[in-house]
């Protein structure tokens, strides 16, 4: 059997003295879409950050493996080069750096070869058109003065341009209106194929309405307490997390 794309074992994550995740296990194979649900403050974003390698969190125990390689101590750029991508809940504003220059450098860093300007621009504009992002945004400073929706679309644009093996989407739909959610879910559907995988973090169901979901995990009490199929989403939507509380599997 081929190695799983992502294999998280017994993950313990701290911020300072505070333990946020305790003994979390999660396996994601190529071709799969996983959804992580959980109440605010349950540690969903911490899980995403720990997989990406954020320096703000401290992995105190456990391992993160990607395609069989232990990446627990790798810097975020090395993880990105292996094919890990995180769509940020609150993307950073980088003044003075245009979306185009940033993305060209990022594609160059991930592929090891800076793409030729004309070819890159053509691809960038095509993807921007698909996402309904005005082409003038290519020459805007990265995320500076962007609305919430523009920031989220720009994250999806990065996803499509970098084409990673694993896309972690941290609240990719928060703060978006219905139309914008559809644009984001369309973008996600364009990205997914049999060779890559997605880990979608959300606390509402709108985003995943139009996406085929294989597994849903409920994060509670610092680890995954329940794993099921797509049907969990509507049960949680209807009855809240209390509706599934009795199903705890771990």
């Amino acid at each position: 059997m081929t190695k799983p794309l992502l294999d998280v074992r017994n993950l313990h994550v701290n911020v300072g003295e505070k333990l946020i995740l305790r003994g979390l296990n999660l396996t994601v194979n190529a071709g799969e879409t996983h959804v992580i649900m959980g109440q605010n403050g349950s540690g969903k974003s911490t899980l995403a950050a720990a997989i990406m390698g954020s320096p703000m969190f401290d992995v105190s125990d456990g391992t993160v493996e990607f395609l069989g390689e232990d990446i627990t101590r790798l810097s975020p750029d090395k993880r990105a080069k292996l094919g890990v991508f995180l769509s940020f809940q609150n993307p950073e504003e980088i003044p003075g750096v245009t979306v185009e220059n940033f993305l060209r450098a990022a594609v160059g860093a991930v592929t090891g070869e800076t793409p030729r300007l004309f070819k890159f621009q053509k691809e960038l504009f095509a993807k921007m058109d698909e996402l309904g992002l005005d082409r003038v945004y290519a020459s805007r400073e990265l995320n500076v003065g962007f609305s919430g929706g523009e920031k989220k679309k720009t994250e999806i644009l990065q996803l499509l341009m970098l084409n990673p093996k694993l896309a972690i989407l941290d609240e990719a739909d928060s703060g978006l209106d219905v139309d914008a959610v559809r644009v984001v879910s369309d973008g996600i559907n364009k990205y997914r194929n049999a060779d890559n995988a997605m880990l979608i973090i959300t606390h509402n169901q709108r985003l995943v309405d139009d996406i085929k979901v294989d597994y849903v995990h409920v994060l509670d009490d610092k680890h995954i307490t329940l794993t099921g199929g797509a049907e969990l989403i509507s049960r949680i939507a209807d009855g809240g997390f209390a509706a599934v509380h009795g199903d705890i599997t771990e």
Binding site: D77, A80, E93, I94, V97
Partner: peptide, 30 residues
Amino acid sequence: ISEQSIYYLMSRGLSENDAKGMIVGGFAEP
């Protein structure tokens, strides 16, 4: 310089030095 900004750029494949260089270059852009 924001650690979070450096992390954001590094998560897109830029090395720490390249990320800092990009942030400083952007700061100097005006």
